[in-house]
């Protein structure tokens, strides 16, 4: 069994989607618990990709193929997780703010959060403050909202979105994380965000802290 889980870890880490599918299938057939496959193999592999990214030893293409391998494995695993009543560790709504069309950073954060066990609702790019509010109200059990902006000209939309959350009286119901090239912790604090992250690897750690999964 350990060999299969190691193989799955390596397949996700190396972005080998067919290898991930084969190993998930083989591990299930061998009687591995779905949660163990996820927690002991797939999530650690994505965390390692994030660590390598932070160290400058992996880059965006490597993160993308790893996330794709993770998704391929999850497609096989997900029905078994549901059958075993394994819940996501939290729910995240994410999007790029109004006026900003950049999506790759936001997509990477979404993939990494999924890789860490979160359920994600991706609102896409050019998301208005009201659309963020509507999504949180519609989903109902959102733990974390992630906003991305790549431009100094669109950063003010982060504040506008947080103001919309306050106006809708849902600001206290969720945690808010912001990120993107021009975003600093000082800016995040000034606009009322609960945290900020420099890259997708760090975003997972901040998300885990904000949602109470890590200190």
């Amino acid at each position: 069994m350990e060999e299969l889980l190691d193989g799955l870890y390596t397949a996700v880490l190396n972005g080998d989607a067919s290898g991930a599918v084969e190993n998930v299938t083989a591990a299930l057939n061998a009687g591995a618990a779905p949660e163990a496959i996820l927690q002991e193999s797939m999530i650690p592999a994505m965390m390692e990709v994030g660590r390598l990214f932070e160290l400058g030893e992996a880059f965006v293409p490597e993160m993308l193929i790893a996330a794709r391998a993770m998704q391929s494995g999850l497609q096989i695993l997900r029905p078994h997780l549901i059958a075993a009543d394994v819940e996501p560790v939290g729910k995240v709504v994410l999007g790029t703010v109004s006026g900003d069309m950049h999506d790759i950073g936001k997509n990477l954060v979404g993939m990494m959060l999924e890789g860490a066990g979160y359920a994600t609702v991706d609102l896409g790019v050019n998301v208005s403050p009201q659309a963020f509010v509507d999504a949180v109200e519609k989903e109902g059990d959102v733990d974390l909202v992630c906003m991305s902006a790549l431009l100094t000209t669109t950063m003010p939309q982060m504040r506008a979105t947080i103001d919309a959350f306050k106006h809708a009286e849902i600001y206290d119901d969720v945690k808010i994380m912001v990120g993107g090239a021009p975003v600093t912790p000082e800016f995040a604090e000034a606009i009322g965000a609960h945290g900020s992250a420099d890259d997708a690897g760090q975003a997972v750690k901040v998300a885990q802290r904000l949602t109470g999964l890590a200190a």
Binding site: G15, V60, P61, L64, I65, R68, D103, I104, N107
Partner: peptide, 10 residues
């Protein structure tokens, strides 16, 4: 598109 082009490289 940037994301697809990253995947294309592999």
């Amino acid at each position: 598109g940037p994301q697809q082009f990253c995947l294309d490289m592999y």
